[in-house]
Amino acid sequence: MARRVGVVGYGHLGQYLVSEIEKRDDIQLAFVWNRTLDSLKGKVPEEKILKDLNDFKDCHADLIVEVAHPDISIQYGSLFLSHADYMIGSPTALADISLESALRGAASGHGLYVPSGAFWGGEDIKKMADRGTLQALKVTMTKHPAAFKLSGKLKDINDTVTDTPVTLYEGSVRDLCPLAPNNVNTMAAAALAAHNLGFDKVQGLLVSDPSLRDWHVVEVELWGPGDIAADRAFHCRTVKRNPATFGAVSGTATYASFLSSLLAAHGKGPGVHLC
């Protein structure tokens, strides 16, 4: 029997997911909700448009996928988990300690799924965290200034970038997430995979590079067993160049990765799961 999927959000990623779901036989569309309902008319079958998100349970979704904004998890995350599995497309929301605790508690009957997105090597990092051998993790994300949606001091710095790369932020992922909630979901996924370090100890570096018009670059660097100070510890560094439309928040390859995560988001039972 095909799983029923509800999609919350109809931006570029939401549109892609709805289109792909409708092509498949193993999953079917339960509902689509968007803050601006007019954007759904003529694009989504009328009977699949959910006008009031509070009525989501009437659609009997097996999996609800958020691709809208971190605020959705704040308002509805626990409610979603009381009726269905929930895939959180904006895991930066979990940098809020109280929300992470609430959703972990709510995931007692259904699964809370975290998509890997642009994060590379998540399962391997989680295995090291499970064994307690992961000592440090740093994620560097470099994008064109136009690809950032920032707030506060980071926005002010990014607005001054002209012709040379500028470091916008370097420090804990927890402090970064509220300042760049749309841009650093990759880092949030890393902090969840590296659960023995968490949001406070996983380090994030955000770079605005005006020469990077067609790519997003994500570098993941980790240290495992051994003596880091003496440079005798296990060390791995990966660099991924993700093609991206100019000014886009997400790279092109992230869309297909997200669909793969959606298809994998089932059958793992209660708790928090990478997918």
Rank of each mutant, 00 (worst) to 15 (best):
V220Q: 00
I27E: 01
F80A: 03
S108Q: 12
G226Y: 04
T238D: 03
K138L: 10
F80M: 08
V173I: 15
L50P: 01
V239T: 13
G42P: 03
T254L: 12
A230P: 01
D163K: 13
G77R: 03
L134S: 03
R35C: 11
W223Y: 08
P181C: 14
H110S: 08
L37D: 02
G14R: 01
R232W: 06
P225G: 04
P145L: 12
K240H: 07
G105D: 04
K155N: 10
D52G: 12
T142N: 00
A248L: 09
P165K: 08
M128C: 08
S73K: 02
Y10D: 02
T252S: 15
A84F: 07
I157A: 14
L168D: 04
I88G: 03
S172E: 04
E170W: 11
A30R: 03
K201N: 09
Y86D: 04
A264D: 05
L112D: 00
S250T: 09
A136T: 01
N34I: 04
R131L: 15
I49F: 06
K57N: 04
Q135V: 05
M87C: 11
P181L: 12
P210K: 14
G14M: 08
T186N: 10
D62H: 14
T142C: 02
H235W: 05
P165M: 12
L205R: 15
G14K: 03
I27H: 01
G121E: 00
A147R: 00
A189D: 00
Q75Y: 06
D209H: 09
D85C: 08
G14N: 04
V139F: 05
I27F: 05
E47M: 11
R131W: 03
G224D: 02
Y169Q: 05
Y86G: 05
P178M: 13
G204S: 08
D200M: 11
C177I: 12
T133P: 00
A190N: 03
A193C: 10
V220C: 07
P243T: 10
G109A: 15
D26Y: 06
G171E: 08
V220M: 10
G117F: 03
M87V: 08
D156G: 10
A248E: 03
P145Y: 13
G198I: 06
P181M: 15
K127Q: 04
I97V: 14
A84H: 03
E100T: 06
A146P: 01
Y113A: 09
S39E: 09
G109F: 07
S208D: 06
A102E: 06
N196Y: 06
T133H: 01
G171S: 11
K201I: 06
F56M: 09
D96K: 07
L53H: 05
K153W: 05
S82Y: 04
G14E: 01
S151I: 12
L103Y: 00
N183V: 12
H60S: 14
L192Q: 02
L179Y: 06
G204M: 10
F56C: 07
H83M: 11
I157H: 02
I228R: 07
A248S: 13
N185M: 10
D58P: 03
F148Q: 00
P45L: 14
N196L: 11
T164D: 08
D200I: 07
A190S: 08
P145W: 11
L259G: 04
G6Y: 00
L13T: 05
P165T: 14
M128L: 13
A264M: 14
A95W: 00
R213Y: 08
A118P: 00
